[in-house]
Amino acid sequence: MNPLLKLESVCKAFGGLKVTNNVNISVMPGEISAIIGPNGAGKTTLFNQITGNLLPDTGKVLFKGKDLVGQTPQKIVFSGIGRAFQISSLFPDESVLDNIKVACLSRMNKTKKFWRPMLKFKQATEQAYAILESLGLESQAQRFAFELAHGDQKLLDIGIALALKPELLLLDEPTAGMSPEERKVTQNLIKKLWKEFDLTLIFIEHDMDMVFDIAQIVRVLQQGTLLAEGSPEEIQNNKEVITAYLGEEL
């Protein structure tokens, strides 16, 4: 089987600082994997290079065999990569429903329609409701996005990404800022979404319980380099990883 996403010796430096140093990663279709590493290891930067926010200095980002380097975020979204952000990125003054619906309309290529009222796009509304139900947000559909609780905002962010029907979904710290109980719920929800939407999923996370619980493959980044890669058990027992990152936590 061919990998869905393949990074080939991706490098990126800001000034003299190498934030991504010769990273090679192959992500198989249907895989759920985690990227861990200390702050400043270059995790988000790596996401940014996959989604087109940042241009790698050298290397290739192959998605379904095609190189994405140099393409705009807009194009990359439609080739099937979705993304949710570390700090939830929403349309705060719109309703929860419309936040998702506008993404549905974008995927259906209907955002140029300037004559028919939003309300008439029933198919998009249905799809948006379906996603809200999967997220458990359907009861909040008519509230403004800014009114939502922090945890729900993070979910809505994921929902916007899902509405674009991605094959590959990147989640940047989906449980950041959540209480332990919320984390547990979100963790189960992410696992559920992964199955339900038939996703290939990569998430950045600091919560090790979640990482070792739901990830099939864990990748460790340190100072821009891929330090280790393997199953949760392998990573937990990897001496290098333990000294470099996990430390006495385990």
Binding site: T51, T72, P73, Q74, K75, V77, F78, R83, S89, L90, F91, P92, D93, E94, D98, K101, V102, A103, L105, S106, R107, K110, T111, K112, K113, F114, W115, R116, P117, M118, F121, I160, A161, L164
Partner: peptide, 28 residues
């Protein structure tokens, strides 16, 4: 008014509130 309440108008409101996210909806 039709324009303002159409999907195009919606995208414009989104551009106002969060242009970065609009790019990640695949819109310029």
């Amino acid at each position: 008014k039709r324009i303002a309440y159409s999907p195009f108008g919606m995208v414009l409101r989104c551009v106002n509130q969060n242009p970065d996210r609009v790019r990640f909806l695949g819109r310029r």
